[in-house]
C-alpha cells in the first residue's frame, strides 16, 4: 500500500517537474486519432482524386493527373456543384435570418426557466433521429400533407399552386421541390446556427448597446454598427456548420426534393455503383476548397476582428 502511494507520489512529482511530459501524455491520443485516422483517411481519399478512370474498361489508372478535376467542369457535373452551393448559401442565409432573433431573445431576455425552455426547444430536435425528422417533413410537405391541407382550408390553395408553378424552386408538390429541400435543410441545421450566435450575443455587454443609443444611434443603427459586427464571429461559426453540413449532405435531397442531384449524392453514387472513386474524391474536394475559400474571405473581411 505504501509502495503504491510512494509510486503515485513520485509520478505526481515527476509530472510536476516536467509539465511538458504531462502535456504530451494528454495530447498524444487525440493527436494520433486526428492525425492518422481522421486526417490520414481524408488525405487517402483526396489522393484518389489525382488518379483517373479508364472510360472503356472502368479500371482506375494510378497515374497522377488532373483529368478527373477537369471532369468536374463538364456541364452535368458543374450544375451539381452550382446547385449545391446555391442551396448551401440559401440555407445559411435563411438560418441566420431565422436564427438571429431567436438567439437574440435567448441571450438578452430569457432568464431562468425561459432560458431552459429555449435550450430545450433548440436542442430537442437533435435528440431524435435525423431520418425520422426528414421523413416527417416529407409527410408534412406532401400533396396529401398538413401544409397543403392548411392552404386549402384557408382558401389559399391557389397561392401555393402559383408558387409551385415557378420553375426551379417549384414542383408537383412541396415534397418534390427544391423549396422543400430548403425547408428541411433549414429545419435540420438551424440549431447549429442559433447556438453559436446566442453564445456570441451573450458576450456583448449590455452597456455597449446602451452606449450606441446614447451616442445617438437609432435601434437599427445599433444593430447594424454594433450588434451585428460583434455577433459576426457567432454568425460565421454558425454558417460554417450550416454551409458545410448542407454541402455534404446526401440524404435530405434524396428523400425530399426534385431528382436533381447534389454533391453528396454525386459522391455517394460515384464511389458506389459507378465505381468511379477518383471522380467521387474530386467531388469531395469541392466542399473543402469552398470552405477554405469562404473562411479566407471571412477573415479578410474582418469577421473575426471582434473575437
Amino acid at each position: 500500500m505504501s509502495r503504491h502511494t510512494n509510486a503515485a507520489v513520485s509520478l505526481s512529482d515527476l509530472l510536476w517537474r516536467r509539465p511538458n511530459l504531462l502535456l504530451l501524455i494528454l495530447i498524444l491520443p487525440p493527436a494520433l486519432w486526428l492525425g492518422i485516422i481522421y486526417l490520414g483517411s481524408l488525405f487517402a481519399l483526396l489522393a484518389q482524386s489525382f488518379f483517373s478512370i479508364d472510360e472503356f474498361s472502368g479500371v482506375i489508372q494510378y497515374e497522377l493527373t488532373l483529368k478527373t478535376y477537369g471532369e468536374l467542369f463538364r456541364p452535368a457535373n458543374f450544375d451539381i456543384i452550382v446547385r449545391t452551393v446555391v442551396m448551401a448559401g440559401a440555407v445559411t442565409i435563411g438560418a441566420a435570418v431565422v436564427g438571429f432573433p431567436v438567439a437574440y431573445y435567448a441571450a438578452r431576455y430569457a432568464r431562468g426557466k425561459w432560458k431552459a425552455i429555449f435550450y430545450l426547444g433548440v436542442m430537442m430536435p437533435l435528440w431524435s433521429s435525423y431520418l425520422v425528422k426528414v421523413y416527417s417533413w416529407k409527410l408534412i410537405l406532401a400533396k396529401e400533407g398538413i401544409l397543403n391541407w392548411l392552404f386549402e382550408t384557408l382558401h389559399l390553395g391557389w397561392l401555393l399552386n402559383a408558387y409551385l408553378a415557378i420553375p426551379i424552386i417549384g414542383g408537383n408538390s412541396l415534397s418534390v421541390s427544391s423549396t422543400g429541400t430548403f425547408l428541411v435543410f433549414l429545419y435540420v441545421w438551424i440549431p447549429f446556427m442559433i447556438l453559436p450566435i446566442q453564445a456570441s450575443l451573450e458576450r456583448v455587454p449590455h452597456t455597449m448597446l446602451e452606449a450606441s443609443g446614447d451616442l445617438g444611434a437609432r435601434p437599427y443603427q445599433t444593430f447594424l454598427h454594433v450588434l451585428l459586427p460583434l455577433a459576426l464571429p457567432g454568425v460565421i461559426a454558425g454558417s460554417i456548420f450550416t454551409f458545410s453540413l448542407t454541402l455534404g449532405d446526401y440524404i435530405i435531397p434524396q428523400i425530399v426534393g426534385s431528382s436533381r442531384r447534389f454533391i453528396g449524392q454525386a459522391v455517394y453514387a460515384y464511389q458506389g455503383t459507378a465505381g468511379n472513386i477518383p471522380l467521387a474524391a474530386a467531388f469531395a474536394v469541392v466542399p473543402i476548397v469552398l470552405m477554405a475559400f469562404y473562411l479566407w474571405i471571412a477573415k479578410r473581411k474582418g469577421a473575426f476582428d471582434a473575437l
Binding site: M208, E210, V226, P229, L230, G302
Partner: peptide
C-alpha cells in the same frame, strides 16, 4: 454618457 466600463466598441 461615460460608462463605468467605458463600453468602447472593440471592433
Amino acid at each position: 454618457t461615460v460608462f463605468q466600463d467605458y463600453a468602447l466598441f472593440p471592433h
